[in-house]
Protein backbone atom coordinates (compact mmCIF):
# COMPACT_ATOMS: atom_id res chain seq x y z
CA UNK A 1 0.00 0.00 0.00
CA UNK A 2 1.12 3.53 -0.73
CA UNK A 3 2.54 5.42 2.22
CA UNK A 4 0.04 7.54 4.11
CA UNK A 5 0.09 11.33 3.67
CA UNK A 6 2.09 13.13 6.36
CA UNK A 7 0.86 13.89 9.87
CA UNK A 8 0.04 17.59 9.63
CA UNK A 9 -0.54 18.21 13.32
CA UNK A 10 -3.55 20.19 14.58
CA UNK A 11 -5.76 22.23 12.31
CA UNK A 12 -9.03 24.09 11.96
CA UNK A 13 -11.77 24.34 9.40
CA UNK A 14 -11.19 27.59 7.51
CA UNK A 15 -14.20 29.87 7.87
CA UNK A 16 -14.70 33.35 6.35
CA UNK A 17 -15.37 34.84 9.80
CA UNK A 18 -11.70 34.26 10.65
CA UNK A 19 -9.98 35.34 7.41
CA UNK A 20 -8.87 38.70 8.70
CA UNK A 21 -7.67 37.43 12.06
CA UNK A 22 -5.66 34.68 10.38
CA UNK A 23 -4.08 36.91 7.76
CA UNK A 24 -3.40 39.87 10.04
CA UNK A 25 -2.08 37.94 13.05
CA UNK A 26 1.07 39.64 14.31
CA UNK A 27 2.41 36.48 15.94
CA UNK A 28 2.33 32.91 14.70
CA UNK A 29 -1.01 31.26 15.36
CA UNK A 30 -0.96 27.77 16.90
CA UNK A 31 -2.63 26.28 13.82
CA UNK A 32 -0.67 23.77 11.76
CA UNK A 33 -3.06 23.48 8.81
CA UNK A 34 -6.52 24.29 7.55
CA UNK A 35 -9.30 22.26 6.01
CA UNK A 36 -11.40 24.11 3.44
CA UNK A 37 -14.95 23.28 2.38
CA UNK A 38 -14.30 22.58 -1.29
CA UNK A 39 -17.67 23.88 -2.52
CA UNK A 40 -17.08 27.29 -0.91
CA UNK A 41 -14.21 27.85 -3.33
CA UNK A 42 -15.69 26.25 -6.44
CA UNK A 43 -16.65 29.72 -7.66
CA UNK A 44 -15.42 31.88 -10.48
CA UNK A 45 -13.49 34.48 -8.50
CA UNK A 46 -13.77 37.26 -5.96
CA UNK A 47 -12.82 37.45 -2.31
CA UNK A 48 -13.15 33.72 -1.44
CA UNK A 49 -10.43 32.71 -3.88
CA UNK A 50 -8.29 35.75 -3.04
CA UNK A 51 -8.36 34.84 0.67
CA UNK A 52 -7.67 31.21 -0.19
CA UNK A 53 -4.63 32.14 -2.25
CA UNK A 54 -3.21 34.15 0.65
CA UNK A 55 -3.86 31.48 3.26
CA UNK A 56 -2.40 28.67 1.16
CA UNK A 57 0.85 30.62 0.96
CA UNK A 58 1.19 30.22 4.72
CA UNK A 59 -0.54 26.98 5.68
CA UNK A 60 -0.92 23.44 4.35
CA UNK A 61 -4.48 22.80 3.19
CA UNK A 62 -6.73 19.81 2.77
CA UNK A 63 -9.98 19.90 0.81
CA UNK A 64 -13.21 18.57 2.29
CA UNK A 65 -16.38 18.34 0.20
CA UNK A 66 -20.04 17.82 0.98
CA UNK A 67 -21.52 17.18 -2.46
CA UNK A 68 -19.66 14.32 -4.11
CA UNK A 69 -22.61 12.08 -3.25
CA UNK A 70 -20.39 9.05 -3.56
CA UNK A 71 -23.07 6.62 -2.37
CA UNK A 72 -25.78 7.91 -4.70
CA UNK A 73 -27.16 5.71 -7.44
CA UNK A 74 -27.35 8.77 -9.72
CA UNK A 75 -24.48 9.04 -12.22
CA UNK A 76 -21.35 10.74 -10.94
CA UNK A 77 -21.58 14.47 -11.51
CA UNK A 78 -18.65 15.00 -13.85
CA UNK A 79 -19.12 18.76 -13.93
CA UNK A 80 -18.75 18.80 -10.14
CA UNK A 81 -15.71 16.52 -10.29
CA UNK A 82 -14.11 18.67 -12.98
CA UNK A 83 -14.55 21.76 -10.83
CA UNK A 84 -13.18 19.85 -7.84
CA UNK A 85 -10.13 18.86 -9.84
CA UNK A 86 -9.61 22.44 -11.02
CA UNK A 87 -9.70 23.63 -7.41
CA UNK A 88 -7.29 20.86 -6.39
CA UNK A 89 -4.88 21.97 -9.11
CA UNK A 90 -4.97 25.47 -7.62
CA UNK A 91 -4.76 24.46 -3.96
CA UNK A 92 -2.47 21.43 -4.16
CA UNK A 93 -4.12 19.95 -1.04
CA UNK A 94 -2.48 17.29 1.07
CA UNK A 95 -5.59 15.21 0.38
CA UNK A 96 -9.24 15.49 -0.67
CA UNK A 97 -12.10 14.07 1.35
CA UNK A 98 -15.86 13.69 1.20
CA UNK A 99 -18.54 11.71 3.00
CA UNK A 100 -19.76 8.13 2.87
CA UNK A 101 -23.27 9.20 2.01
CA UNK A 102 -25.59 10.29 -0.77
CA UNK A 103 -27.11 13.73 -1.25
CA UNK A 104 -29.77 13.13 -3.90
CA UNK A 105 -30.94 11.30 -7.01
CA UNK A 106 -32.88 12.22 -10.17
CA UNK A 107 -31.11 15.57 -10.49
CA UNK A 108 -32.14 16.81 -7.04
CA UNK A 109 -29.72 17.74 -4.28
CA UNK A 110 -31.11 17.49 -0.76
CA UNK A 111 -27.98 19.08 0.73
CA UNK A 112 -27.83 16.51 3.49
CA UNK A 113 -25.49 13.64 4.26
CA UNK A 114 -27.92 10.77 3.89
CA UNK A 115 -27.17 7.25 5.12
CA UNK A 116 -27.27 4.00 3.15
CA UNK A 117 -27.95 0.40 4.12
CA UNK A 118 -24.81 -1.59 4.80
CA UNK A 119 -25.25 -4.29 2.17
CA UNK A 120 -22.97 -6.14 -0.21
CA UNK A 121 -24.76 -4.41 -3.07
CA UNK A 122 -24.05 -0.96 -1.60
CA UNK A 123 -20.48 -1.96 -0.85
CA UNK A 124 -19.79 -2.92 -4.45
CA UNK A 125 -21.55 0.19 -5.74
CA UNK A 126 -19.77 2.68 -3.49
CA UNK A 127 -16.34 1.08 -3.82
CA UNK A 128 -16.66 1.17 -7.59
CA UNK A 129 -17.59 4.87 -7.53
CA UNK A 130 -14.71 5.77 -5.26
CA UNK A 131 -12.38 4.02 -7.69
CA UNK A 132 -13.85 6.02 -10.57
CA UNK A 133 -13.40 9.28 -8.68
CA UNK A 134 -9.85 8.41 -7.71
CA UNK A 135 -9.03 7.57 -11.32
CA UNK A 136 -10.50 10.88 -12.47
CA UNK A 137 -8.76 12.97 -9.82
CA UNK A 138 -5.52 11.02 -10.17
CA UNK A 139 -5.20 10.61 -6.43
CA UNK A 140 -6.56 8.67 -3.49
CA UNK A 141 -9.38 10.36 -1.64
CA UNK A 142 -10.38 10.06 2.02
CA UNK A 143 -13.90 8.98 2.87
CA UNK A 144 -15.57 10.12 6.09
CA UNK A 145 -18.04 8.20 8.24
CA UNK A 146 -21.21 10.28 8.79
CA UNK A 147 -23.57 10.76 11.70
CA UNK A 148 -26.88 9.02 11.14
CA UNK A 149 -30.27 8.99 12.79
CA UNK A 150 -31.69 5.85 11.20
CA UNK A 151 -30.47 2.41 10.22
CA UNK A 152 -32.02 0.10 7.65
CA UNK A 153 -33.62 -3.28 8.17
CA UNK A 154 -31.86 -4.56 5.06
CA UNK A 155 -28.35 -3.87 6.37
CA UNK A 156 -26.22 -7.01 6.28
CA UNK A 157 -23.26 -5.78 8.30
CA UNK A 158 -22.24 -3.20 10.91
CA UNK A 159 -21.25 0.30 9.88
CA UNK A 160 -17.64 -0.23 10.96
CA UNK A 161 -17.38 -3.42 8.91
CA UNK A 162 -18.79 -1.54 5.92
CA UNK A 163 -16.39 1.38 6.35
CA UNK A 164 -13.35 -0.87 6.73
CA UNK A 165 -14.35 -2.93 3.71
CA UNK A 166 -14.93 0.18 1.57
CA UNK A 167 -11.41 1.38 2.34
CA UNK A 168 -9.98 -1.99 1.42
CA UNK A 169 -11.95 -2.54 -1.79
CA UNK A 170 -11.64 1.01 -3.11
CA UNK A 171 -8.09 1.40 -1.79
CA UNK A 172 -8.94 4.81 -0.36
CA UNK A 173 -8.04 6.67 2.82
CA UNK A 174 -10.42 7.22 5.70
CA UNK A 175 -11.30 10.42 7.52
CA UNK A 176 -12.50 9.26 10.92
CA UNK A 177 -14.97 11.72 12.36
CA UNK A 178 -14.81 10.98 16.05
CA UNK A 179 -17.92 13.01 16.80
CA UNK A 180 -19.85 11.10 14.15
CA UNK A 181 -18.80 7.80 15.71
CA UNK A 182 -20.05 9.09 19.08
CA UNK A 183 -23.31 10.52 17.70
CA UNK A 184 -24.16 7.40 15.70
CA UNK A 185 -23.13 5.20 18.64
CA UNK A 186 -25.60 7.03 20.88
CA UNK A 187 -28.33 7.08 18.23
CA UNK A 188 -28.03 3.39 17.38
CA UNK A 189 -26.85 2.17 20.77
CA UNK A 190 -23.61 0.63 19.60
CA UNK A 191 -20.23 0.66 21.35
CA UNK A 192 -18.33 3.60 19.86
CA UNK A 193 -15.06 2.21 21.22
CA UNK A 194 -15.60 -1.00 19.28
CA UNK A 195 -16.22 1.06 16.12
CA UNK A 196 -12.81 2.68 16.60
CA UNK A 197 -11.20 -0.72 17.19
CA UNK A 198 -12.55 -2.16 13.95
CA UNK A 199 -11.23 0.56 11.64
CA UNK A 200 -7.93 -0.32 9.93
CA UNK A 201 -5.08 1.79 11.30
CA UNK A 202 -3.22 2.06 8.01
CA UNK A 203 -6.17 3.78 6.26
CA UNK A 204 -6.91 6.69 8.59
CA UNK A 205 -5.32 9.99 7.54
CA UNK A 206 -7.45 12.51 9.42
CA UNK A 207 -9.63 12.96 12.49
CA UNK A 208 -12.56 15.35 12.74
CA UNK A 209 -13.61 16.67 16.13
CA UNK A 210 -16.90 18.53 16.29
CA UNK A 211 -19.87 19.39 18.46
CA UNK A 212 -23.43 18.17 18.24
CA UNK A 213 -26.86 19.01 19.62
CA UNK A 214 -29.32 16.97 21.62
CA UNK A 215 -32.75 16.45 20.12
CA UNK A 216 -35.63 14.37 21.40
CA UNK A 217 -34.15 10.86 21.78
CA UNK A 218 -31.49 11.69 19.22
CA UNK A 219 -28.13 13.44 18.90
CA UNK A 220 -27.82 15.65 15.84
CA UNK A 221 -24.55 16.45 14.10
CA UNK A 222 -24.92 20.22 14.02
CA UNK A 223 -21.30 21.42 14.34
CA UNK A 224 -22.60 24.41 16.25
CA UNK A 225 -21.31 23.55 19.72
CA UNK A 226 -17.94 22.96 21.33
CA UNK A 227 -16.56 19.43 21.26
CA UNK A 228 -17.97 17.60 24.29
CA UNK A 229 -15.97 15.68 26.91
CA UNK A 230 -17.15 12.29 25.67
CA UNK A 231 -15.89 13.03 22.15
CA UNK A 232 -12.52 14.12 23.52
CA UNK A 233 -12.41 10.85 25.52
CA UNK A 234 -13.13 8.90 22.34
CA UNK A 235 -10.46 10.95 20.57
CA UNK A 236 -7.94 9.83 23.17
CA UNK A 237 -8.90 6.23 22.53
CA UNK A 238 -8.55 6.79 18.78
CA UNK A 239 -5.07 8.27 19.24
CA UNK A 240 -4.02 5.21 21.20
CA UNK A 241 -5.11 3.01 18.30
CA UNK A 242 -4.13 5.09 15.30
CA UNK A 243 -1.10 7.02 16.56
CA UNK A 244 -0.38 10.46 15.12
CA UNK A 245 -3.26 11.41 12.81
CA UNK A 246 -3.89 14.95 11.55
CA UNK A 247 -6.60 16.35 13.78
CA UNK A 248 -8.93 19.29 13.34
CA UNK A 249 -11.88 21.06 14.93
CA UNK A 250 -14.82 21.34 12.57
CA UNK A 251 -17.20 24.18 13.38
CA UNK A 252 -19.83 25.23 10.82
CA UNK A 253 -22.45 27.21 12.69
CA UNK A 254 -22.63 29.49 15.71
CA UNK A 255 -19.01 30.26 14.83
CA UNK A 256 -17.10 31.56 17.88
CA UNK A 257 -14.06 33.86 17.94
CA UNK A 258 -10.91 32.17 16.70
CA UNK A 259 -9.47 32.14 20.24
CA UNK A 260 -12.24 29.80 21.42
CA UNK A 261 -11.47 27.32 18.66
CA UNK A 262 -7.77 27.56 19.48
CA UNK A 263 -8.60 26.62 23.08
CA UNK A 264 -10.40 23.53 21.82
CA UNK A 265 -7.53 22.72 19.52
CA UNK A 266 -5.09 23.08 22.40
CA UNK A 267 -7.14 20.60 24.37
CA UNK A 268 -6.70 18.14 21.49
CA UNK A 269 -2.95 18.85 21.48
CA UNK A 270 -2.80 18.29 25.21
CA UNK A 271 -4.59 14.96 24.92
CA UNK A 272 -2.28 13.94 22.09
CA UNK A 273 0.80 14.89 24.08
CA UNK A 274 -0.34 12.47 26.79
CA UNK A 275 -0.75 9.62 24.33
CA UNK A 276 1.89 10.13 21.67
CA UNK A 277 5.63 10.37 22.07
CA UNK A 278 7.47 13.62 21.50
CA UNK A 279 8.97 12.12 18.35
CA UNK A 280 5.56 11.18 17.01
CA UNK A 281 4.25 14.71 17.54
CA UNK A 282 7.36 16.24 16.05
CA UNK A 283 6.68 14.59 12.71
CA UNK A 284 4.16 17.36 12.03
CA UNK A 285 6.05 19.55 9.59
Amino acid sequence: MVEKPPFLGFGLGLRPQHYTEILEATSELPIDWFEIISENYMVEGGRPLKMLDQIMERYPLVMHGVSMSIASTAPLNMDYLTRLKTLADRVNPKWISDHLCWTGVHGVNLHDLLPIPYTEEALNHVASRIEQVQDFLGRRIAIENVSSYIEFEESEMDEWTFVAEIAKRADCWLLLDVNNVFVSGQNHQFDDGNFIDQIPVERVVQFHLAGHSEGDDVLIDTHDQPVCDEVFDLYEKALRRFGPVSTMIERDDNIPPLAELLDELNRARHIASGVLSHEQLETAA
Partner: peptide, 22 residues
Protein backbone atom coordinates in the same frame (compact mmCIF):
# COMPACT_ATOMS: atom_id res chain seq x y z
CA UNK B 1 -41.02 0.07 7.18
CA UNK B 2 -37.40 -0.25 6.07
CA UNK B 3 -36.03 1.78 8.99
CA UNK B 4 -34.60 0.22 12.11
CA UNK B 5 -34.37 2.28 15.32
CA UNK B 6 -33.77 1.55 19.03
CA UNK B 7 -36.72 0.88 21.33
CA UNK B 8 -36.56 4.33 22.93
CA UNK B 9 -37.75 6.06 19.76
CA UNK B 10 -39.73 5.54 16.56
CA UNK B 11 -38.90 5.41 12.87
CA UNK B 12 -41.24 8.39 12.32
CA UNK B 13 -39.31 10.55 14.76
CA UNK B 14 -35.91 9.59 13.45
CA UNK B 15 -36.82 9.90 9.77
CA UNK B 16 -38.47 13.18 10.66
CA UNK B 17 -35.03 14.55 11.51
CA UNK B 18 -34.11 14.32 7.82
CA UNK B 19 -37.46 15.69 6.65
CA UNK B 20 -37.26 18.63 9.01
CA UNK B 21 -33.60 19.31 8.25
CA UNK B 22 -34.24 19.50 4.51
Amino acid sequence: PRISVPENTTAEKRFGVYQFAY
